[in-house]
Amino acid sequence: MPKSTRKRSSGRVSGRRGRGSATSAVETITRPSQSLPVVILLSVWRWRWELIVLALVAYIVIAHGAAVSGYFESNPLWLNALLIIVLSGWIFTDNLVRRFARNRIWCVITRHRVRACLTEMRTLNWSGNLPFIVGCFSTRTGQVIWLFMRPGLSAEDLENKAETLASACWARTAVITRSTRNAALVRIDIDRRDPLSKQHIVSPLLNDTSDMPEAAVAEDAVMAFLGPEPASEGTTDQPPAKSGSGETRTRTAKTKTTAAVNDGNTVVLGVNGEDVSDYV
């Protein structure tokens, strides 16, 4: 009896130890202990653009909703349809207001996506705080985001994370750079479009071959077009020298000279195309 009780108790202890070792492998994330006013202020800052839009819509509906509905009811149907068509055309055409609204919408989306990506990548300090997003601004190729790294975080925590951020933001590429003045400031450039992709640049240096098909322009033709112009060949022959009774002919080597002007300097080329200006 005592032996059996000891075996059972030892099995229970080993089972508890096994369960304890299994729970120790679970990752735990600490949450920052912030007061309620701080949480409210951070939430208002994070959702400020959404709150502004909701406030404007509520103001228009409450203050001017009756006037707008009365105006459309007093107008005939064709005039209301014409106003809707004009308003839709103004929204979908390229203008300053449309560009501003589109850029701000993408900035808001990018800021939320970057914050969600930082949360999923566990870019947190030991207190559980994420990097503070200072702001998101629009550029010609996309958006740029400025991060203020909390104590315990640095730009090294974002190394090799550019592709992950680009995938999270639905962008082409992402470039992460650290500020040279302050190590706590990190810049993330989100590139969504290439401004030169729709522009066809024609070089004036290829006027003779720009209209030709690519198959007709061979490498030899391009090199011949870019090579120097052929110059006249000069030959120098000396008469044979006579000495005493015997005649000895001395034939000088023929030297082909080609002169090409380059930046005001004369270059003399030999038979093999070597520069022999220093020997002439």
Rank of each mutant, 00 (worst) to 15 (best):
Thr141Met: 07
Ala22Asp: 05
Ser127Ala: 04
Arg172Glu: 12
Thr235Glu: 04
Ser21Ile: 11
Ser74Asn: 00
Met149Thr: 01
Ala58Tyr: 08
Ser4Leu: 13
Thr258Trp: 07
Thr141Trp: 01
Val271Thr: 10
Asp263Phe: 03
Thr258Glu: 03
Val271Trp: 04
Ile84Thr: 14
Val175His: 14
Val86His: 03
Ser232Asn: 08
Asp275Gly: 00
Leu269Thr: 11
Leu206Pro: 09
Leu153Met: 02
Ser277Ala: 09
Leu165Glu: 09
Arg251Gln: 09
Thr236Asn: 01
Ile201Glu: 12
Lys3Cys: 03
Glu50Val: 05
Glu159Arg: 14
Glu214Asn: 12
Ser35His: 14
Ile85Trp: 09
Val144Tyr: 05
Ser43Gly: 06
Leu118Tyr: 04
Ser21Thr: 13
Ser74Thr: 00
Leu77Tyr: 10
His200Ile: 05
Asn272Trp: 04
Ser14Gly: 04
Leu118Ser: 01
Pro239Ile: 06
Arg19Glu: 07
Arg12Thr: 08
Ile62Ala: 15
Val39Glu: 04
Ser203Arg: 09
Asn125Gly: 00
Leu185Phe: 10
Trp47Tyr: 00
Ile201Asp: 12
Ser245Arg: 15
Gly89Pro: 03
Trp78Pro: 00
Leu56Phe: 14
Gln199Glu: 14
Val86Phe: 01
Phe148Arg: 11
Gln238Trp: 15
Ala215Val: 10
Ser179Cys: 10
Gly270Asp: 06
Pro151Trp: 03
Ala171Asn: 03
Arg251Pro: 14
Asp263Val: 10
Gly244Arg: 12
Leu87Glu: 13
Thr252Lys: 15
Ala116Arg: 07
Ser127Lys: 06
Asp263Gly: 09
Met223Ser: 14
Ile52Ser: 07
Ala162Gly: 06
Ser203His: 06
Ala81Ser: 08
Arg150His: 05
Asp189Cys: 00
Val86Met: 08
Thr209His: 11
Arg140Val: 15
Met1Glu: 09
Pro228Lys: 10
Asn160Val: 00
Arg249Pro: 01
Asn262Tyr: 13
Met1Phe: 08
Leu83Cys: 11
Arg249Val: 11
